[in-house]
Amino acid sequence: MKLKVISGICFLLFVLIVSCQSDESIEFKRYYSAGAIVYQGHCQNCHGTNGEGLSALIPPLTDTAYIKENLKSLACNIKYGLKGKINIAGKSFDDAMPAEADLTPIEIAQAITYITNSFGNKQGTVTVDQVNEDLIKCGN
């Protein structure tokens, strides 16, 4: 009897954990697959299908250390564009990135989730709440 109860509780716990995980991974997959489409429409022409960039004109998105350090600035960079010199993958880039002012916070979150989990990056889900928080810093 005792054994049955314990194994029953264990089973319930197991189900709970599994379902929690899959909730999270469903959220991630939603962001990621929607982000792939935002990326194709707004980023891919310049940054490339594989995030490879273009010579010394357009930086690649494959510098995992840069992506990790600047995770919180990405939303502002996308929404308002980026000017000035940056160092990525051992090269310096100083051409302006145009603003994608028309993108909504949810689209930006999807794009960031896609970028930061592709091309060798692995940063997990960046939610719309995080993006809204990040955008306050550069909001005019």
Binding site: N45, C46, G48
Partner: peptide
Amino acid sequence: CPSICPIMQRNML
């Protein structure tokens, strides 16, 4: 050019 030029230049390379 912010639109199709980078992809053209990548292919022209």
